[in-house]
Amino acid sequence: MIRRFIRLLLLAALVAAGFAFWMTRAVPLDEDALAGVEGDVENGQRVFTAAGCASCHAAPDTKGDDKLVLAGGQKFPSNFGTFIAPNISPDPTEGIGDWTAAEFASAVMQGVSPEGQHYYPAFPYGAYTKMKKQDLADLWAYMQTLPASDTASQPHDVGFPFNIRRALGGWKLLFMDDNWVLKNAPSEQVTRGRYLVEALAHCGECHTPRNMLGGMDTSRWLAGAPNPSGKGRIPGIAPGAFKWTEGEITYYLETGFTPDFDSVGGHMVAVVENMAELTEGDRQAIAAYLKSVPEQPSE
């Protein structure tokens, strides 16, 4: 009787482990995910700018056209370890030049590498999963026009247990969601702003607080958060504590000047440099969206 019970228990544990193993596997997109979608280089450049790819993947301390060499090497410290952005230039050996369009789509929208591994969510695929397939195809077309770099990617400096990539499958199950945070956009302009903020510019990645497992607390969307590098805070940008007008937000995203004519600083400088290259209409759409999200109390 007891032996049978133990046998049953072992069987149940095995089934549960198998189920967990199955559920946490890395699922790439189908090989024909982008079939029939023709990439447009010009729009790809706009997507590239709005998504801020170069801000993290350019080599450290680069400016101007050098930022288009996506050699990697910038470090991103966090509670889980230090992530180092990889080379995503079109170099076939050190970069991503030998990838297929579907592999690129799986990486950006699902966080799955061509080798079938999960990427760490320091790479904001949780936002990019909301990207339009056309924009993704355009981005892929544009990125293939950029200069190649043969700089080798460096391994992340992440300790146990966070170095078990399989566990990221569980993270994705818990926290990855391709639904909009702002369910109902009240206008065309806010719909555009929602796409820019939630999908491409991935503003929530820094401006929304996270739980102990590094999942975003969407009930406190854009409420502000501690700086993952340790010192300082990322400010809240939802209505409530954040009182800038739409015009002030738009001007800041273009010039880097706050309403008090203080200057943007830190990593946000790279963001503003990207936003300044968008159209005035897109900057206004971002501002309109930020005024449409739920109010967050000041802390």
């Binding site: 700086n227 990322i234 200057s263 600083g265 830190g266 990593h267 946000m268 400088v269």
Partner: peptide
């Protein structure tokens, strides 16, 4: 624009950003 670029370039690297 020129003044903004000068402010940004310095604040990007040398000022703790928390606002």
């Amino acid at each position: 624009g020129g003044l903004g670029d000068a402010c940004k370039a310095c604040h990007e690297k040398y000022q703790q950003s928390d606002d």
